[in-house]
Design a protein around this nucleic acid. Structure first.
Lengths: 136, 136
DNA sequence: CTATGTGCAAATCCTTTGCATCAAC
DNA sequence: GTTGATGCAAAGGATTTGCACATAG
């Protein structure tokens, strides 16, 4: 297995991710890191994001029809995606309320269920307000 | 809104999807329909799959890092994806066991949660058997 | 010094689209 | 005969990769 070396670029990516709750795409990361490393390439951003993901330091969020997003929060939690504005928001769902869905899903199934990916959709607080303002 | 005309190609796609539980990708559909319509193009397959999806006759299943799959079953149900062989299998989860996760997710959230996408991962029955056979 | 990381550009994969022609109504 | 559907090929977006050079250890 390859030995891991330090890199200023990777540090910068981690720092940026750690400091935002925006769940940025690779492009957004790229745009941001560029302010400090004007020569960084998109390829490097992708390479580091996927390395960090493999190391378990970053979670990759894949949603239909949109570019992947990245989340520095690695503890188990869920994501809400606003169908109006596309924003991705962390949800804190109590584990006891949802933690056993793998077992529920596996009931009567002959294989082994040991994980799931679940994303919630709807309208985010900001967009709800926006709709009310325009009398919808 | 555009008027819908009949097409033999579309019929064939529907017929194929209705007769399989494989959750085929666009490529798999293409390969299959080609046996009857050797000149059909991949573009036509994509166009029809996405039309059928918009009409609600077909469900599109998006999974990270894999091409989309299509399912003729449109009643609410969940999918299991085998991490060994990639197979996608329908799960019948009793609605009372999982039907209220939107409400659970929305607890303490200021927006509106009105839907979710949830996929389960693990090892399918065939691969479980395979592992046992090789003493794993 | 040696191995890993970078920047750049090209390549890849899946999917969508423009356009001339064909088929359904 | 109008309009939607097709086939073909080209374009598109997101992501990965090959390679020569830079840099961390």
């Amino acid at each position: 297995m390859a030995l891991l070396k330090h890199s200023r670029q990777r540090d910068s990516i981690v720092e940026y991710l750690a400091g935002t709750k925006e769940h940025p795409t690779a492009d957004m990361v790229y745009a941001n890191i560029r302010e400090q490393f004007p020569n960084i390439s998109l390829g490097t951003v992708y390479r580091n994001l996927s390395l960090l993901n493999e190391l378990g330091q970053v979670v990759k969020i894949t949603t239909p029809g949109q570019p992947d997003r990245f989340d520095y929060r690695t503890d188990p939690h869920y994501h809400f995606i606003c169908v109006k504005c596309g924003r991705v928001i962390d949800l804190d769902i109590e584990d006891k309320d949802i933690g056993d869905i793998d077992a529920i899903a596996g009931k009567g199934f002959d294989g082994i269920v040991n994980g799931h990916i679940c994303q919630f959709y709807g309208i985010c607080p900001d967009c709800v307000r926006e709709e009310r303002k325009h009398g919808n």
